[in-house]
Each structure stands twice: as structure tokens, then as C-alpha cells.
Design a protein around this nucleic acid. Structure first.
Lengths: 236, 236
DNA sequence: ATGTGATTTGTACTATCGTACAAAAGATCA
DNA sequence: TGATCTTTTGTACGATAGTACAAATCACAT
């Protein structure tokens, strides 16, 4: 179909395998796993449905390979940034650096795949929402260590906050991060169109700033007693 | 259309229509829209597949009816709580009350359907992640007004924060809220099993506390200059 | 140029999907 | 009771799903 002008380079039109991976990543991330058929992927990649079976055996195998492709680089990058962040001496600055080390690789490229970071993170968000089993397994065994490392680092910057609260707030961070990537235009819509919903740098800044403040909130148990109010207590 | 239930009880085998709605709600919320077949729903409801077609015409129609069933009551409850929150005089207390008015109906029942609040909110989270068109439309025309009302109320409590930042942080709130309901056990897992990941009241408190702090963070543009740090500036 | 192993294509198979529709069953009231 | 609705059942149909597999094609060392 597409002719290679030269037989020298293997990756003239990128390996087809790569094209399939990229197409699948994009389609899965925007539509979910079950809504996308193997034929959809093949068509988007300019490939034959049989090619997908050849390279990845099954649809699950394709998803698994997408994860394998990204998890390593993204974790590596996070580790590097986390190590650098830990060296920041000022406690507040360090907290911000740690949060940034967590957020940045999720938005920007986690490997050499173009724009891969945001797309893969969005994919993770969607798979998580769908309760995809393949994704759940590989994520649990790949990211839980990283999550713990970050939680520990944050806890070091906020020794007076109980670990439980740190975990909750990290959880909220991940949710906010996911949602930002799942609905990339919702912010501009609600902002009455005057803003930069699509600018990832701005999204990162907003997320980091808000998250740092959330982490710094007083601990739940020891919150100032005067602060307890129950405006919405009826249970229905 | 509405036949008097008459003969002694309201429904000896509960309306079947309700059973189908409940089963669909549960299955969609945990597995996504496309992963669940009409036959799955019928079986879970103890009904015949044809019954689903009879009551809701199409699968989309079934989803639409689920939304119709919940959106009204939940918005009503939010409005009530928001109105009450707005009457709180102290600015910080009011902010917390407003956030609570937004969060509580999403966790607890928004109508008389048992446990409907959390389940429906989880459903919304999943549909949002999957980019479901039916859900997107009805949500945009049902919740955007509410969202604006909340954003306005929060802005009133934080006049010095630009509206853009408020919108972002509301966005993060919704993401955190969604994610808490999508992965109900992740917190306990990361907390090394000693905590209450399944307790909704605790989740609400954690979310409200963290979110209030996030809203109160300094505005992005006017953040203290000394605070700007770029520990993660390299781009890939 | 040719043989060889790696890919790509085309097609086919079975399972399951959403939906339609006629017949059966149940309920309501003259 | 019999007539007339509403609801449930059973079954079927066309479309599409994931996957398998043989044939065709390609890349390249010889």
C-alpha cells in the first residue's frame, strides 16, 4: 500500500507495529476499551485487522503492550524528578517539587513517544474508570511502589499530618489529574471561553498549586474544633 | 399511564422496570457502558431481554432514563444545601459549607433510591471517562447551571481569587470526587490496610477538608515570586 | 536472482451484540 | 366471564465482535 522509497531504513513508515500501538492508544484513551474494535484500530493505523493479531495476539495483549511501553519510562522519570525534589532543603519548596515530580511526567512525554505522557495517563484514567482487569493488574504491580515513594516523600515534608490524610490527598491528586486529562475542554467551557483550558503547562501549574495547598491543610483529626460544622447532616 | 397499583401491595415483584434500572445502573457504573450487554442487565434484574426493549426502547434510552431519574433530585438537593450554605456569615465557614453542599449529595442518596447517590455519581464518572455522548449531552444541560452556581458561590467566599483559578479547582474537586467513587478500595490498599477506605463519611470529610484548602491557595498569577521554582523544567 | 524468514492481506468462523416482533401471560373493569 | 389493555416471554435477524489461518508480499543475505 504505502511504498517505501528506500529499503535502507526499517522505520520509514514506522514499523506498522508502532502505528497500531499509537492508534490503539489514542482510541482507547478517548473511547474506552470495549467501544473500540480491533478493526477500528487497524483502520486508524492504516493496517489490516490481521496485522493486529499477528503483532499482539489478542486485544488484551495489545493493551498490555501499551502499558509495558509506557510504565517503565514514566516511572524512571518520576524517580529522577523525585530524587531531585528530595534534595530541596526548604520544606515547603520540597513539597511543591515532590508534587511536581509526580504530576509533570503524567502530562508530558513519559518516553520518546510524542505527546505520550498525557495520552497514556488519560488511557490509565479511562481504564481505571472501566475497571479493566488487565490494566488493574499491571498498574498495581507497577505504580504502587512509586505511589508509596511519593507518599513517603510528601509525608517527610509534612511530618505533622497523619499518613492516612496524606494517602487520601494523594488519591485526590490522582483523581484531579486524571479528570483534567479526560475532559480537556471542560475548564474552558465553564470559564466562559476566555481561558486556556488546552494549555498543559497552565493545567500543571494550577494542579500543583491547588494540590500543595490541599496537602498543607490541617489534619482531619486535629482540625480546630471551631471548624467543625455540619451544614449538611440530613442523611435522606 | 400511571396505573393505580391497587391490589394490596405496590408491587409484589417490584416493578421490573425499577429492577432493570437498578441493575443497569450498577453494571454500567462498575463496568462501563459498552462492556455491559442488554442481556447482562436483564439477567441481573431477573428479567427477559425483551423487557428491556419494551420499557426503554434502546440501550441508550435506558441510560438516559437512569440520568433522568437522578439528575433532578440531586440538583434539587444541591440547591437546597447551597442556599443554606450561602447564609453562613463567616467567609471561611461559608466556603466549607458550599463545598460540602456540592460533595454530600454526590455521595449520599440524591433521591429515594437506596444508596443512589454514590452509585449514580460513579456512573457519571465512568460515562465521562468513556466520552459517552448520551451522558455528555444530558450532563451539560443539567449540571452546568449547577456548576456555575457553585463556582459563583465559591467565588463570593474568595473574592481575591480569579475566577479562572476557581474553575480549575472546582474541576479538580470533581475529579477527586469521581475518582474516590471509582476506586473505592485504593485508599485502604495504599494505607497499608489500617484505614477506612470504605467509609463514605470519612471520605467526605477528607475531600471537603482538602478541597477547602485547595480553594484557599494563593492565586496563580499573584503567587509569591519567591515561590516560583522549576525543579522539573526539562521537557522530556 | 533466489531462497528464506518476517510481515501483511484477505477471508472465514463462531459468538455475541442490539433490537424487533409475535405470541403468551397477567391485570382491569364492564 | 369476556374484552381490552399492559407486560413478559421466546425467538429470530442482521450486524459486528475477536480471532484464526492460508495465501500473498516484502526485505534482504547469499
Amino acid at each position: 500500500m504505502v511504498r517505501k522509497p528506500t529499503s535502507k531504513e526499517t522505520a520509514r513508515k514506522p514499523n506498522m507495529r508502532e502505528a497500531i500501538l499509537a492508534a490503539a492508544e489514542e482510541l482507547f484513551a478517548t473511547n474506552g476499551f470495549n467501544a473500540v474494535s480491533v478493526r477500528d484500530i487497524a483502520q486508524a493505523a492504516g493496517a489490516n485487522p490481521g496485522s493486529v493479531t499477528y503483532h499482539f495476539k489478542t486485544k488484551d495483549g495489545l493493551l498490555l503492550e501499551i502499558y509495558r511501553r509506557h510504565c517503565g519510562p514514566m516511572n524512571l522519570r518520576r524517580s529522577e524528578l523525585l530524587a531531585a525534589a528530595k534534595r530541596v532543603r526548604d520544606l515547603q519548596d520540597r513539597l511543591e517539587a515532590v508534587v511536581r515530580a509526580y504530576v509533570v511526567p503524567a502530562f508530558t512525554s513519559g518516553s520518546d513517544l510524542a505527546g505520550g505522557g498525557a495520552r497514556f495517563t488519560r488511557l490509565r484514567a479511562v481504564m481505571s474508570a472501566e475497571g479493566n482487569e488487565v490494566a488493574r493488574k499491571i498498574i498495581a504491580q507497577t505504580f504502587d511502589d512509586t505511589s508509596h515513594a511519593f507518599i513517603d516523600a510528601i509525608h517527610d515534608s509534612l511530618p505533622h499530618i497523619p499518613r492516612t490524610d496524606i494517602v487520601w490527598r494523594s488519591h485526590f491528586l490522582l483523581g484531579a489529574l486524571y479528570y483534567s486529562l479526560v475532559t480537556p475542554d471542560r475548564v474552558s467551557r465553564l470559564s466562559r471561553g476566555e481561558t486556556d483550558g488546552g494549555d498543559p503547562a497552565n493545567a500543571i501549574e494550577q494542579l500543583v498549586q491547588a494540590t500543595v495547598a490541599a496537602f498543607q491543610a490541617p489534619a482531619l483529626d486535629q482540625a480546630a474544633p471551631a471548624r467543625r460544622r455540619t451544614v449538611a447532616s440530613s442523611k435522606t
